[in-house]
């Protein structure tokens, strides 16, 4: 990153920290209007450093090799497709996948936050799915927290001699589940249970999301492995430039 870019990221972090202290903090997608305004702003501000870093990271990757732009758009399109498919689950309700694992593995968590927020804005405005006021919270859970975990796992697992495709599967699978855990925590922070407090609330929300999401997370893992297999086969050069093979042999 250049000096100017570093300054921007740093400034946004400072801004976040200041805002974090001044705030009186006491579903995949959280529904429009369901989070108190303070939380909406708080989560939104928390996303800023990641979005800024992501913007510069994408800019850098593309300026180094323009061919990676096609892979980036495919990773974005993957999020588009997977988050639009509502899949029935064993609990008798529907949910959808995140699709952010692929971007996180290939481009890192910050770049993925940009891909994620595009999809979330699309859904918030046109589909009344998620929402503009809850955009910050949803971006944090789906486009930052999940990808961070996926990225970390993908870096870690090959070092433990786990097969590359198995690592991809686990990274996408856990990343998807973690997104819903974060959503549960976010909802619980805004709506602590009167009897059991904050923890009881987290468990209640997890109880709603987790069983539904579990099979879908497996599905997301499988689909991510499939597209990675296709890319390994047909776009080896591009993903090699991105450092995909560096982590895992």
């Amino acid at each position: 990153m250049t000096h100017k870019q570093k300054t921007t990221v740093l400034l946004s972090i400072v801004f976040t920290v200041i805002m974090g202290f001044s705030l009186n903090t006491g579903a995949m997608h959280i529904m429009e209007g369901y989070l108190p305004a303070g939380y909406c702003i708080g989560w939104g501000v928390l996303c800023l450093p990641f979005l800024a870093a992501g913007f510069f990271s994408i800019k850098k990757t593309i300026s180094q090799n323009r061919r990676t732009l096609t892979i980036l758009s495919m990773a974005g399109a993957f999020v588009f497709v997977l988050s639009s498919l509502k899949i029935p689950s064993v609990t008798g309700s529907c949910s959808h996948m995140t699709g952010t694992g692929l971007g996180a593995i290939l481009f890192g968590p910050c770049a993925t936050s940009i891909l994620g927020i595009i999809v979330l804005i699309f859904q918030a405005i046109l589909l009344a799915h998620g929402g503009l006021t809850t955009l910050g919270a949803n971006t944090f859970s789906m486009a930052i927290a999940g990808p961070l975990v996926s990225y970390g796992l993908y870096k870690l697992l090959p070092k433990l001699k786990v097969n590359r495709l198995v690592s991809v599967f686990i990274a996408a699978f856990i990343g998807d589940l973690f997104t819903y855990c974060v959503t549960s925590v976010q909802l619980a922070m805004a709506y602590p249970s009167e009897t059991g407090g904050y923890i009881a609330s987290v468990l209640k929300f997890l109880g709603v999301f987790a069983p539904t999401q579990l099979p879908l997370a497996v599905l997301e893992g499988i689909l991510t492995v499939l597209i990675i297999m296709a890319l390994e086969n047909y776009a080896k050069r591009e993903i090699a430039v991105l450092g995909y093979f560096r982590e895992a042999k």
Binding site: C94, L187, F205, F209
Partner: peptide, 14 residues
């Protein structure tokens, strides 16, 4: 079963 969205299940929980 109805296969409603789990987002709605979330708002019921609230």
């Amino acid at each position: 079963s109805e296969f409603g969205g789990s987002d709605d299940a979330g708002s019921e929980m609230i």
